[in-house]
Every structure is written in C-alpha cells, then in structure tokens.
Design a protein around this nucleic acid. Structure first.
Lengths: 208, 208
DNA sequence: TAGATTGTTAATCGATTAACAATC
DNA sequence: TAGATTGTTAATCGATTAACAATC
C-alpha cells in the first residue's frame, strides 16, 4: 500500500509493463535489460530505468532485470495479489461482454451480481451464471455483501442516479462506461472508459 | 485538416469539451465564460483559454464563448463533420455492444459489416441488421468497399494476424480492443482501448 | 578483470498555471 | 464608461531524456 509519490504517468504505464513482462515469461525469457525492453515496448531505456526505480532496485548492474521478480512486484503494486468483489450495473451487451471475459476473474476480479432496471427482459442473455437482480435491490444487496468495485454500463443519467447508492453502499471504486463524469467523494475512485471519446480521438488522428 | 502542432494533451481533452458543450446546448445555454466552464469541468480557466485559443479566437473579451460556435468548431476539428465506414472484426458480445450502440452512427460512424472466424455460431446474435461474413472474405470485401476504420474485438494473436490484411485493405484507422499492441505503418492510426489495463489502474488507485 | 548495465543526477522538453494588458 | 473576460506572455511545474559514475 506504499505510495511513494508515483506519478500519474508512471501508473498509466505500469499495466503495459505488466503485459510485456507476462509475454516475456510465456516466452521463457528470464532476464531482460532496459535496452532490450525499450526496443520491444517503444520507450526509451532511460524512461524504463527511471520508472522501475521508483519501486526499489529490481535491477542489477551488468545483468538487467529478473523478469519473474519484476512481473510479480508490478502485479503487487497494481493490487493484483488481492481479490475484489464486483457488481455490474446494467445487463446489456457491454455488461455481458465484461462479465463473460474470463481474464478479469483470473486476475482476482470476481463478478458477483448484475443489476438491471428490468431484469426479466434480459434473463436469458446473462452469461456465466451470474445472478441478475432488479436495480431496486441494489441498496439491500450492498448492505449485505461487501463490494469493492461497481461497473457501470447504463446510460449517463441513470449512471449519475445510481452513483450515490453505490457510494453509500461502500464501494471503493467505480469502473464507469457511461458517457458522463461522476461525482463521488475522495474516498471513492472513478475510472472511466469513455468509448465515444476514444473513437473521436481516432477520427481526429485519421484526419491530421 | 490543419494541424497547427496541437499537443497530444489537448487532443485528449477535446472530446470532453465537446461533450460538455453538447450538454450546455441541451440546457439552452448559449454563451459561457472560461471561468464558468472551468468550474463545471474541473479544469483551470487558464487551461481552457489556452486550449481553445489553439484553434483561433472563438472567444470575445468581456463576453465569453458562443457555445454553438465552439461546439460546431470542435466537432469539425475532431472530424465529426465527415462520415466514416467501419467494419467490426469479431462478433462476440463486445462487437455487438459496439455495433448496437446508436450514438456512433449518429456521429457519422457507420458500421457496414462484421467478420468472424465462424459466423454460423453467432448468426442469431447479430443485432441491428449488420451483415456478418466469414473472416476469410475480409480481403475481398475491403478491395470492393472503401473502409475507413476497422474495430478489432478478437483475441490478441488473431488481432495481430488480421492487422496486415486491414492495412493492405486500405483502412485509415484501427480501433483496437485486443490486449496487444499492433504493428502498423505510419499511414495507419491505431487507437487502443485496453480494458484490462484500465481495470488494473483502478485497482492501483483503490489501494493507494 | 573487462564489459555490460543499472541507479541517479542534471539537462531538456512539454504542459499547466499565473498574471495582466488588450478589448469587447 | 466600467466591468468582465479573453488572448497571450511569463513563470512554474512535471515528465522525459541524456549522461555517466557506480557496480555487478
């Protein structure tokens, strides 16, 4: 849980380091230098050394970094050594895509329940055996089940409405796919995935 | 198509400006000052003025900015005054979520076709009347239909394999949801949405 | 040891914020 | 005109890159 003033820019790169180190492990590579990693990841070696050093000396002069050690350590920093209980708000295709993706559960993100305004409509679509409840039961559910993360996949206005209930219910983080910003106290973290903004950025880049 | 050295940081903020200005329009607000906008968006007024000035003087001293004018102009800068033809690679839940979302079509992003390795398996799932073809037909399809953007929703390895075909087929941009980076020439833009990295960032922030 | 490569400081680059004259 | 607010320059802050001594 130590947070030695790690900058936002570094945090954003950590999952990518984690992915590349995982690939190296799969390939049976057990050590790597900042130079070699920089070539693979399209970063400067300098930046990699600067980044990795924030967490203490994982490297060894003249040798490089031990892939396994670094992978495990970054996993710990990212909190992947814990497990998390999740609820998904909404039961549409996006909600199903997320809850049906096995990779999250593998990393400790366990989806325990889905909530939808009109659960009957979707009953037969729900995949993976996750129970689907009416949204009106959310408050009661959260009071009985400690929940770390809520995934919001419903439209903007409904998302803003459900946020207070989630905050009061004690969730620590909200993974927000709605096209809106959410107002939460400092104790709750919002991580937004704004798909339409991403697509607009692509369209900008295509044209310039 | 002018690109007056607008920084990456500004481009990333543009869609958010666009969203807020759209909301203001809906609320019937026809002018706004950088100060008022900064309060709503949680930015500094200084940054807003700096950003908006890159595109020429939309503001007026003592008055502020005309919401409609600014909205339209940012839309143009983002390329939302054009329309784009898209194909979606993959036909799983994520592909269906994207192709079923009407907001993209409204902004000029028209999904023309979906491709999947085994289209029979999904035939009944496909929503919105978008034709689904076998992936083996992709090359032929692209040679007959000018396609601006490909959306990749298949696993990492398959994504890397299909990329060359997309590049040769002349797509200008790839919206990539696979958990991998993609190798493309400079003429093609890749915009990645790495969902698992986003979730890891959330888990980091929850713990620190 | 000699070669390789890190850890770390200093230099550069870029982005944000502050300040205020220009002007509507 | 007086008040408000931009446009724009200068100051600050933060992030990246370069350089090299330390050391395995």
């Amino acid at each position: 849980m130590e947070n030695k003033g790690i900058s936002k820019a570094v945090i954003n790169r950590l999952p990518r380091y984690y992915r590349y180190l995982g690939m190296l492990l799969d390939q049976g590579v057990d050590r790597i230098s900042s130079g070699e990693l920089s070539r693979r990841m399209n970063l400067t070696a300098s930046q990699i050394r600067q980044d990795l050093n924030l967490f203490g000396g994982f490297g060894q002069q003249g040798y490089g970094y031990n892939v396994r050690k670094l992978y495990d350590e970054i996993g710990k920093i990212l909190g992947l050594d814990c497990s998390y209980s999740l609820v998904v708000i909404g039961a549409g295709k996006l909600a199903q895509a997320i809850s049906g993706y096995f990779g999250f559960e593998k990393r400790g993100f366990k989806i325990e329940a889905m909530f939808d305004r009109d659960p009957d409509k979707h009953k037969n679509d729900v995949v993976g055996g996750i129970p689907l409840y009416p949204l009106s039961d959310l408050k009661a559910y959260l009071s009985e089940h400690v929940t770390d993360i809520a995934v919001i996949t419903i439209p903007a206005e409904a998302a803003r409405e459900v946020t207070d209930c989630l905050v009061e219910g004690g969730v620590r983080g909200i993974w927000n796919f709605a096209h809106t910003d959410l107002d939460v106290p400092d104790s709750v973290t919002v991580q937004s995935v704004h798909l339409s903004e991403s697509l607009m950025q692509l369209s900008y880049k295509i044209n310039h």
